[in-house]
Amino acid sequence: MISPILFWCVAFLTVVPALSLLFAKKAVHIAMAIVAVMVGLAVAYVALDAPFLGVVQIVVYTGAVMMLFLFVLMLVGVDQREEMKETLVGQRWIALFGAGGLVALLISVIADVTMEPAEDMTSGEPDAVAGLLFTDYVVIMEILGALLITAAVGALVLTHMPRLAPRRTQKEQQRDRVLAGANPVNKPMPGVYARHNALDVPALDPEGKPIEDSVSRVLEIRHQMDTATSYRADLNDPSKRVSDKPEHEATAETDSEKGEDK
């Protein structure tokens, strides 16, 4: 026999989260509450000598079905608001009355049952269930396999979006970009050939002009880009040109100066 404590724990664990279906606002909260209901039902199955079904319940419902619900909520948008305006007048109260009446009817019928539960039963271990599943119910089992395949294909067909225009290849995209006048080669990294290679310093092209495209657009929007005016001034001022002297000699001089300072 089932311990009353276990039954009331299961009842509490299932009915209270299930009520969130009626009262909770957010669909995600409801989905998590239904997960709790499924776990409670799995406990009930184990208590009712159906350990195999209890495990299947956890794997199929909490593991697969409710996660599928959460994925769809994510795709559809969690913030889908539910408008509370009633299109049919009094529909909510009629619905609640109908559901309550159904419960009252079913309970009154069950209360009339005088059947004594069986004293012992073979526990629903996997081998016991399999023995029945693959003998008496094997045809239904096969048909259910076909049903599952059909459902998977149906889901693929229903969510498939036909492509309206042919897909543009990488080659076509590149050709269009070049035809539109874009530079066909890669942009240089910031700081290439410049005096320092910080991210906010534009690279210099072979003529020594700053390439402003080489600095990240974000820095430009934030006004954090080095405007490179000093480089332009150096270019325009012939006295500051260092181009007559090879670059490595100039750096060698500065290095030796630094060494003396130390």
Binding site: L21, A95, L106
Partner: peptide, 8 residues
């Protein structure tokens, strides 16, 4: 009871 809640 659970069936009733689901139906509602």
């Amino acid at each position: 009871v659970l069936f009733g809640i689901g139906a509602a």
